Amino acid sequence: MSINLSTTIFHNTIQEYLIALAIFIISLIVLKAIRTVIFNQLDKLAKKTKTDIDDTFIKIIQSVKPPFYSFLAVYFSILTLNLTPLASKIFNAILIIWLTYQVVIAIQILINYIVKKKFPGDKKDRAMPELIGKILKGTLWTIGILLILSNLGVNISSLIAGLGIGGVAVALAAQNILSDLFSSFSIYFDKPFEIGDFIIVGTMMGTVEKIGIKTTRIRALQGEEIIFSNQQLTTSQIQNFGKMKERRVIFRLGVVYQTPTEKLKKIPHLIQEIIQAIKLTRFDRTHFVKFDNSALTFEVVYYLQTPDYNKYMDIHQAINFQIKESFEKEGIEIAYPTQTIYLNKN
């Protein structure tokens, strides 16, 4: 029994249906072949290179599931058919939604890669990058939904205006919270201090333990936790000892007025030898600077090549001990506040 290919069924002939079927099969084969070729090439490239960007592209390709290729093949095939307006709208809507979804997923994978690459950090320092990633993803999904609605014929102008008014209302209601939020962005990107740094803010001082979205927490020397709002930190003057590569140390010592000039001239050289013999120090200068009331005063300056405060105290103590030992050997007497009273017998 022969089939008449010109027979019309639902506004299309059998021949047109067969052509659409052939286009569907060919499109499906071509799309899957393209995916396989691209995937294989990227996989080979990933094995040859040390970078992980190619692994990210592989994830993007893997995020496109087989049903999407099947739908694309169906869509290409129905372009040759005469569909009702309702059917055309349905297929176009599905295509727009699905394409937008896949693009958003692909960009989301890239955002995750960039955030992890640019802001490695440890688990304690992951709050800010994760927040940035969530904000970017939320913005991306919002744009995607608006694009879908716009392509489906929905007037989004009033919707955008409503969102704008709502955003202004929320911003006014949460003004302090948003100020702290933006201040946390400023702290994270500008990095005036980092976790582990010892900082002084006004009369408060301690080691930074956590930089949060709204507050920053530091541990004081006495052991208590001090909590600052991020806005307060961005508007305050901060002394950061964690950024200090070397510490400049300046101190003065005095010897008695009875010290002979020859021994006074020896003191700068004695102190220089003491400091230069100690590791992690860099001698700068020693000078006889002043005739004080009860002492001939010398000023000593040296640099400590470590920011560690305990190490500084240990080294400075060692210098003081050696200065006293050296002065005792040389017969140089360290001064202390004294008064000499002369009595006139007449």
Rank of each mutant, 00 (worst) to 15 (best):
E209M: 11
I211T: 06
S158P: 10
L159A: 13
I200G: 02
L131K: 06
S229W: 02
Q237C: 02
F185T: 03
V249H: 06
V249W: 08
I200R: 12
T234V: 15
L163N: 09
F198D: 07
K214P: 00
R252Q: 13
L264R: 10
G153P: 07
G206P: 01
G144C: 09
L152T: 00
L149R: 02
V154C: 00
K263F: 05
E225V: 09
G166E: 00
A161W: 15
K243I: 03
F241L: 09
L149V: 00
V154L: 01
R252T: 08
E246D: 12
I271Y: 00
A161Y: 15
Q231S: 15
T261E: 14
F198V: 06
G138C: 11
S229N: 09
L181M: 13
L140A: 02
S150G: 08
Y257M: 04
I238R: 01
E246Y: 11
A173L: 15
Q239T: 13
Y257V: 02
P260N: 09
T259W: 00
E224N: 15
I274P: 02
S183C: 04
L131S: 04
Q222W: 11
G153M: 06
P260A: 07
I275V: 10
L221C: 08
I132G: 11
G206D: 09
S186Q: 13
Y188C: 08
Q276Y: 04
R219E: 07
I275Y: 00
G196V: 04
M204L: 13
M205Q: 15
E246C: 07
G144E: 10
L253Y: 14
V208L: 09
I227G: 01
I199D: 04
K191T: 03
K279C: 05
A171C: 14
P268L: 11
I200W: 06
T142I: 12
I199V: 10
L253W: 06
N155F: 09
S157F: 14
G254D: 10
K263V: 02
A173E: 09
K134E: 15
Q222L: 11
V208F: 03
T139E: 03
T216Y: 06
L163S: 13
L140Q: 05
I145D: 08
Q258D: 12
G223A: 10
T142A: 11
N151L: 04
G223L: 07
I135H: 01
R248W: 01
T261L: 14
R217C: 08
I160K: 05
N176A: 09
L233R: 00
K134W: 15
I227W: 02
I177Q: 13
L146K: 04
K137Q: 14
K265E: 08
H269P: 01
R217I: 15
I278P: 02
I211S: 07
